[in-house]
């Protein structure tokens, strides 16, 4: 059986989530591996969400927000950019494959970009294979 990665997508309500909607309404095809969670802004994302997602079995995490300068709350994604950059460095230094975590700016009108990013990211995670480092053994902890 081929490996179907489980990818967590976290998208801000105003841009990326709407962009994902647009991808759907324009009937673009993209792999169904990304499960999207909607947050109000990319700055809502607590870095622990990302660590926790990997622990609970995500093979990859994709964060989407408005383009810098376009955040609905003006500066949310500017804070998020710094914060998530640190998250990335931490995962990397811990020894996780850097390719498993990605941040993309996708606007409400970029349905095609959303589809492309999902396609590309899914392919990349397939290449990397299942994420086993942070994933917890269910017997060890019931969350």
């Amino acid at each position: 059986m081929s490996f179907e990665p489980k990818i967590l997508g976290i998208a801000c309500n105003w841009c990326t989530y709407t962009g994902a909607d647009l991808a759907g309404t324009t009937r673009l095809h993209y792999p169904p591996n990304v499960r999207v969670v909607r947050v109000m802004c990319s700055s809502r994302i607590n870095p622990s969400f990302i660590f926790r997602a990997f622990q609970l079995g995500a093979d990859g995490v994709l964060v989407g927000g408005c383009h810098p300068g376009d955040c609905h709350y003006n500066t949310g994604n500017l804070y998020a950019r710094r914060r998530l950059a640190v998250t990335k460095k931490i995962l990397e230094f811990a020894g996780l494959e850097p390719g498993r975590f990605r941040v993309e700016w996708i606007s409400a009108s970029e349905g095609n970009k959303f589809a492309e990013v999902v396609q590309e990211f899914t392919a990349q995670i397939k290449e990397l294979g299942p994420q086993q480092k942070l994933k917890i053994d269910e017997l060890q902890e019931k969350a």
């Binding site: 870095p47 622990s48 660590f51 926790r52 622990q55 640190v86 998250t87 931490i90 995962l91 811990a94 942070l134 917890i136 053994d137 060890q140 902890e141």
Partner: peptide, 16 residues
Amino acid sequence: APQSPGNMMYHLTRFH
């Protein structure tokens, strides 16, 4: 509990 996954979560988050 002082076990691998919880420890990892504690430390990664603390570093952050």
